[in-house]
Each structure stands twice: as C-alpha cells, then as structure tokens.
Design a protein around this nucleic acid. Structure first.
Length: 810
RNA sequence: GCCGGAGUGGCGGAAUGGCAGACGCGCGGGAUUCAAAAUCCCGUCUUCGCAAGAAGGUAAGGGUUCAAGUCCCUUCUCCGGCACCA
C-alpha cells in the first residue's frame, strides 16, 4: 500500500464523525489529562514554523490517551490585540473581518494536519460571550483595589500610538513594531501585580516541572532585593531624603547623594540655589535625552550640584546632593546614596566631578581594581570596623531602626501591569466617568460593554472608541446622571490571562466558568508554547490564577503544572517568517507528502526544546521511511513462511520489539524526546526487514508490525489508523492501549563486551553474562590480542562492568 | 556588565562516567531497469597503509578517574534573558 492524501482525509472525517476527541467534562471515569497549547493570534495563516507547537501538543495528547487518560485538548483564538489589528490596518480591512478570516483558515490548516482538538470547546477572545468575562475579571480586580487608574510615566509607542506594558518593551523598543519607546506622563489603568510579587517569586519553587530557565527569567524579572531605606536629613526640607540601598554596610563610604530629575523634593530643594536656572536647563535636557540615551551603550553620566547638603546619619557629616542622569525614577525612591569606592557607577561619576572617594570595605589583597564591589571586612566605619559585610548589614540596620534614621525594606523590580491601550481591537474597560460620582464601575449585570462599530479604527493616540458617540454617552450606574464611558481597551494579555479556565465551559452564559468543573480539570497538566512567553503571558496567568484563588473562585493557585517550551524552526539562518521570505507553506507539503510526513519530520528534526533547522531534503527521509513502513504491511499480507524459520532471529526481533517499546516510552515520559523515540522505531523497522529476510514466523512478523504502528500512532495518526484497520481492528487505534514491555524478552544471557587495555578498546568477545568476574577476567586475559600487548606481564588491575566492558590496567 | 544555555562528521543530530558519531540527510559504489524514477545491498570521522591493521579524534588548555563528549578549573566562540534596579 502507499500513503496518499486519501488516507488523511478518510481518518480526519472518521474522527469528526465519531467525535473521537470530544470530551464531556462531567465524565471523570478515567484520570483526566489537560493538554494545552498556547492559543495563537489569528493574525495570519500558519506556516511550518508555527506547526511545531501544535504537532508536539497533539503527539502528547494522543500518547496520553493511549496511556489511559481522558484527554482534553482544546483550541481557541487570542483574537483581540495589536498583531491582528496591525495586519488588518495594513490591508485596510476591519480587524474583525480579518480575524475571522484567519480563524477559518487556520482551523482548516490545523484540521488538515490531523490535530486532535475537541472543537466543541473552541473560544475566541474577541466575541462578547468571552470578553464579557474578561470585563468581569477587570471588575473583580477593581473592587479589590487591584485595578486602578493613575498618572504615571509610561511607555509610549509613537508608531502603534498606544502605551505598552513594561514587559512589552524589548531593549527600549516596541515588541510589535520595533519603534523606539518614549516615556510620557499619562493617566492609565494598572493591575496591581506588585501585591503578588513575593508570592509569584516564592511559588516558583512549587513549579517542579517547569524549565529552570523560565523560572530564572521570572525570578530576575521580579527582581527582589533586600536592603534598607536610609533617611538623610536636609536643612531646607521638612522631611529627609530617603535612599534605598542593598549595601548598608558601605554607608560610611557614602560621599554624596544623587537624585533623579523627577524626584518630588527636587524643586523645593533647589528653590534658592544660585544655579537654579542651570539645573532646570539640565533637567529639561535630561528629560529629552533619557529615552534613547539610557538604553544606549555609550551612555555618558552627567550631573549637577544642587548646592545643598544632606547629613549622613552614621557619620553626622555633611555630604553634597547632586542631580544625576543615571538615577532611575521608577526604582526605589529615585534617590541614592553614592559610594564611589564600592560602586562602579558612583565611581565613574565621582571621578568625573572630582567628588571624594572613601574606602570602607577592605579589598582582598589580590584585587587590584580601583573599585571593589564585593563584600569584605569593614574599615573606616567607626564602631562597625572589623565586621563582615553580612554582619554589618544587620547591625547597621538594627542601629538605624533604633535611632529612627532608616528602616529595612524589600524592593521589587516588577512594576504594576499597565493594561489600558488606546486602540480599537480589544475589550472595552468597563468603567464610566460621572461628574458627580467621578469614576464608577459598570455593574456586572450590564456586561458586556460591547465594542462599538466604528468607521475609523486607525490609531491616533486617542482610543478610536472615542469617535463613537453612542458608545461614550451613558448613564452613571450610581446616580443615573449623564456619564461618559472609558474609551481605552484592555491589553491582549488580559484576555489570555484566564482563557485556560474558559475551555472547560466555553458556552456558559451565566458565569465565566463552572467552579466544580474547573476544579476537576485544572491545573493544566501540560502546557506547551514558545519561550517568548516566559515572562509576559506566564507571569500574568500566574497572577490572575492566584487572584482568583484568593477570591475563592477556584481552588488552585498555579495554573500550569508542567510547562514545555519548544524551540523555533529556522531556515536559511533566520527565524521562519513572512518578512524574511523563508516560510515553508504546510499546504504544499501536505499535498505532496501527506500530513503524517510533515508531522513525523517536524518531530524528528531534533530535540523539541531546541531550535531546529528546516531542510527540505531531510523531509524526504520521513517520506521514505513512511513508505518503507507501509511496504511492511504489503509484505505481511502476502507473507509466505519460509521453511527454514530461524528461532534465534525471532528472539532477536522480539527483543528488539520490547526494547523499542521500553525506550520509546521512556523518551515520551521524559522530556518529550520525539526525535530519539522516532529513531528507535526506525531501528525496529530496519530489524524487521532483516528478520523477515532471515526467516521468521508470520505471527511474530505481524506482532512486530502491529507494535510499530501503535508506537507511531501519536506521531503519524492517519497511517496508524489505516494500518490498524487493515490488520482487522475495529474503531480507532486511539482506543487501544499503549504496548506493554514484556521483560522476559529483554533478558540477555550472553552478548558481546569490549576488552579495554588502559581504557582503550583493543578487542571484543562474546561471553555468558552469568560468568563471574574472575572467569571473565581470565577469558579476557586469554584473548590473543591482549596476550600480544601485555606479553606475559601481570596486569595491575582488572575492572569488569557487567555486560559492557572489561578494562585491563597495565 | 550580570544571569542562564550551548559548542560532537559535509549537514540535522545520538550517547544512566563504560565500545563516540545511533537514527536520518547528503555523498560514493553496486544490483534491478531498454532507460529513468522508486527500491534493495555495500561504504562513508581524520591520517598512514594495497591490505590486515595502526595512530589520532567531541571548541582550546589543564585536572580528577582504571575509564571523560559527559565531572572540576582556566580560556575562547555562539545563542538567550536582564541591563546604570543602587
């Protein structure tokens, strides 16, 4: 038989007709397994680079089903948001039309690849029945004070004409369009994710089955640092300047203070300074340069003396207060104590402006550098001399707290999540503004706040929703008076922060999800997606899950038990993408070679968590292999048992069969090593060819072939189904169970081991594994080649590793 | 700069500290064929050798070990994340 497109279609129709992959969430007779692939932005059709995700997920889902789980494998669409909107604008189409068109197209594509989704669970975040609950989530947060509006310096993309979350700014540029980001002071909506910073950090330890590197990235992003906030009193200010530091042990070396230009006390501080005008000029210049300079590598530190002094609370000495362009406004208090002897940045600044440098930590003798940033023993530090940095940090913090000149403080790098966007294609924020009642939440019963139809959805800097008078004008839910709606929409990442809950009850109209069902099916057992979401989506989802757990809406506080991040597919040295012009169209491949060929090749390319290089020629290998496997079925049907059946061949084949089951199972149970699993099946197929050539009985041949197709089923479901039915089985192969290893076939009584001399292979011999160490040693020493090399002398030592090697040391 | 990860044939890549290069691609040779495609068989790390064989070999250098691609130290290169976070 040959593999043709007809086989793909036949079984895709079969699965659909028989609802093979449909899941009834109430039916919990078998252990559940929730397999989830990150849902796509329907911003364009899929190419093979996207395919890896879904094919890996499908292999996992099908495998787990054969292992006896009740597998939920749903699919949906992250349909709102910038990616689709930008594409639509480019084509001058309405974002909705463009999105729906892509959803239709991608659905066809996924079906043509034979991905086993339960399409009854399909969701799209752009439909009112979904975003109604995104708005519900917003209100929940709002009522708990975790959604709030404030004016703050925010990231603004001039090309996308919208604000962006910190997480969406990559090296100072817009994640979507790479335009340079500028800072603007705007009144925006935030989610208070910082309230959860400590828990998001601590609970990373719970995530035993997440890749270490993802956890590390989150840890760094959260960026917890422990230190003290120190009060530096200033004569002309009524309250002291607070400075956060993690190095209280270096306080005696603080020779000046440095302030960010936005520091709230600055204006008052310089009010009567002689150089006030110059400072103001400096401020406006810094403001201009900040966005581009702060991120560039050749950033030059600049500053200006305020002519004011603060008192170092430990020494009682006056130290100058400077304004400096290298101080961040959004971290700590926007002011620092500078210790040039032990901080490179402060050192650089002090050198430039000839500020005093005072060493307070003893350098290790070996260290020749001018600045020593490490820890050590304190010097020039009064009563604290001789203490280690560690001890001094504690003692100094104690002292400061006692004297009320400072207090212990934990700072996080993580900032609140900026969720409002001045864009059309998103869920409207359910808030109205009333003259009398100011800011009022829309009532839950009035949800959804429908996204209005507008003619103009191009970004202008103000939300396009503002153009719809019908939308804006409303009644205040509080007083019934005239009110205006909020016109910003929500960040796409809000939509995707809870979608895994919605799959369980996608049609539910009265609530976002049924708690009982969600508690039964979640957390997600296996989550699969690209590492590019390591911080954004995965952190937001964790936050929202924790929040909902706190509100007693669900009874788990981590959404994803196991995470797998797959590598990208690259071609011609670049990530596969339309703009690079290196995409491979899956339709063409499926048309020519069939879905299973593409699936097999994508899984065989290399370790799935690593980047993989697409090679058209290598795809042929998968095609050849499948044809070769299928020829076995033809051979089996016309098989005439040879007269000279060789029992040892049968033994070899059966051992190979069971060894392969063992290895493939281990590969799949481990870190999804599809590539090695497939190579082992290839080896088995090679062995079958050898064995039938040598002469074996038909039933053993049949058994081996059956095993091959069972093991291949998660990877090449169409072919496996076809062969399964040809071999006389009814129904779907996915209702059969995964083959079991029979250990009796794996026992080996004798075999070849290598003889090494001083660790180098010199000879080989076949031995009985039941032989004792002494007997093996004796036999090895008798080997001709060994005799020749050692020429009669006594070996110093002999090491025998059972079944593997014997090493003779001379 | 800091924190991760990786470096193995012509290529994608295999190797619980125990025979490096499984499996596949490509390439070479042969069989089959009127011919081609497809298929099947053999070969394919490097050097020396007609051969049997010998020697070397996992980025570079050093170490631990009976035994190192694998563990430890130093250096180099590449990739990813964060980046004046005090």
């Amino acid at each position: 038989m040959e593999y043709t497109k007809k086989i793909d279609k036949k079984w895709q129709n079969f699965w659909q007709k028989n609802e093979t992959f449909k899941v009834c969430v109430k039916n919990l007779k078998k252990p559940k397994y929730y397999c989830l692939v990150m849902f796509p932005y329907p911003s364009s059709e899929l190419h093979v680079g996207h395919g890896r995700n879904y094919i890996i997920g499908d292999a996992v889902a099908r495998y787990k089903r054969m292992r006896g789980y009740y597998v939920l494998n749903p699919m949906g669409w992250d349909a709102f948001g910038l990616p689709a909107e930008n594409q639509a604008i480019k084509r001058n189409i309405h974002p909705r039309a463009w999105t729906l068109k892509n959803i239709k197209r991608i659905t066809e594509q996924l079906q043509s690849w034979g991905i086993s989704y339960d399409w009854d669970k399909e969701i799209a975040t752009c439909f009112p029945q979904y975003y109604r609950w995104t708005q519900w989530l917003f209100l929940k947060l709002y009522k708990k004070g975790l959604a709030y509006r404030k004016e703050a310096p925010v990231n603004w993309c001039e090309s996308c004409k919208t604000v962006l979350a910190n997480e969406q700014v990559i090296e100072g540029r817009c994640e979507r369009c790479s335009n340079e980001i500028i800072q603007r002071n705007l009144k925006q909506w935030f989610f208070k994710i910082t309230d959860y910073a400590q828990r998001l950090l601590d609970d990373l330890d719970k995530l035993k089955e997440w890749p270490q590197r993802v956890k590390l990235m989150q840890k760094n992003w959260i960026g917890r640092s422990v230190g003290v906030t120190i009060k530096f009193s200033v004569k002309s200010l009524d309250k002291p300047l607070d400075c956060f530091t993690t190095r209280a042990d270096t306080i005696f070396g603080a020779t000046f203070l440095a302030l960010n230009y936005q520091h709230p006390s600055l204006i008052k501080l310089i009010d009567d300074s002689d150089n006030k005008q110059e400072i103001l000029k400096f401020i406006s210049q810094t403001k201009k340069e900040e966005a581009s300079l702060l991120r560039s590598q050749d950033f030059e530190k600049k500053g200006m003396f305020t002519q004011k002094f603060a008192i170092n609370p430990m020494t009682g000495k006056k130290i100058p207060i400077w304004i400096a362009n290298y101080i961040l406004s959004g971290y700590g208090t926007g002011a620092i104590m500078s210790v040039p002897a032990h901080d490179k940045r402060d050192f650089e600044f002090a050198k430039k402006y000839e500020l005093p440098i005072r060493e307070v930590i003893k350098k290790p003798t070996a260290n020749q550098e001018e600045v020593y940033e490490g820890e050590g023993s304190l010097i020039n530090s009064g009563d604290f001399n001789g203490l280690s940095s560690q001890a001094a940090k504690e003692k100094i913090a104690d002292f400061m707290e006692r004297e009320n000149v400072g207090a212990r403080k934990i700072n996080f790098r993580l900032k609140d999540w900026l969720v409002s966007r001045q864009r059309y294609w998103g869920a409207p924020i359910p808030i109205v503004y009333c003259k009398k009642c100011t800011e009022v939440a829309v009532e839950e019963k009035d949800l959804p706040v429908l996204l209005p139809e507008v003619d103009k959805f191009l970004p202008t800097g103000e939300s396009p929703l503002a153009a719809s008078k019908d939308f804006i004008q409303t009644k205040c839910p509080n007083c019934g008076g005239k009110a205006k709606r909020e016109t910003d929409t929500m960040d796409t990442f809000v939509d995707s922060s809870w979608y895994y809950l919605r799959y369980i009850s996608p049609g539910q109209g009265k609530m976002p999800f049924l708690r009982e069902d969600v508690d039964n099916w979640l957390p997600v057992d296996q989550y699969i997606g690209g590492v590019e979401h390591a911080i954004l989506h995965l952190m937001y989802s964790r936050f929202i899950t924790k929040f909902l757990a706190d509100q007693k809406e669900i009874s788990f506080d981590e959404p994803f038990i196991r995470l797998f991040t797959q590598g990208m597919i690259v071609k011609d040295g670049a990530k596969m993408s339309k703009s690079k012009g290196n995409v491979v169209a899956p339709d063409y491949i499926i048309d020519k070679y069939g879905a299973d060929t593409m699936r097999l090749y994508i899984l065989f390319m290399g370790p799935p968590q690593k980047e993989a290089i697409w090679q058209d020629e290598a795809l042929q290998g998968s095609w050849r292999f499948l044809q070769r496997v299928l020829r076995l079925v033809g051979r089996l049907n016309n098989f005439k048992e040879e007269k000279q059946v060789k029992p040892d061949q049968e033994e070899i084949l059966l051992r190979k069969v069971h060894y392969t089951i063992l290895e493939v199972t281990q590969d799949l149970e481990g870190n999804f090593q599809f590539n090695t699993a497939i190579s082992r099946i290839m080896e088995l197929v090679n062995q079958i060819y050898k064995s039938i050539k040598a002469g074996i009985k038909k039933d053993i041949f049949a058994q081996a072939v059956d095993t091959v197709f069972l093991l291949l089923a998660p990877f090449t479901p169409h072919i496996s189904e076809e062969v399964n039915s040809l071999l006389g089985n009814k129904g779907t192969i996915f209702d059969r169970s995964w083959p079991e290893v029979d250990l009796k076939f794996l026992k080996k009584e004798e075999g070849e081991i290598a003889i090494l001399i001083n660790g180098k292979v010199k000879d080989k011999m076949v031995i009985d594994f039941s032989l004792s160490k002494e007997e093996v040693e004796k036999k090895a020493l008798e080997a001709q080649k060994v005799q020749k090399i050692i020429s009669g002398s006594q070996p110093k030592k002999v090491i025998y590793i059972k079944g593997k090697i014997v090493n003779i040391v001379i």
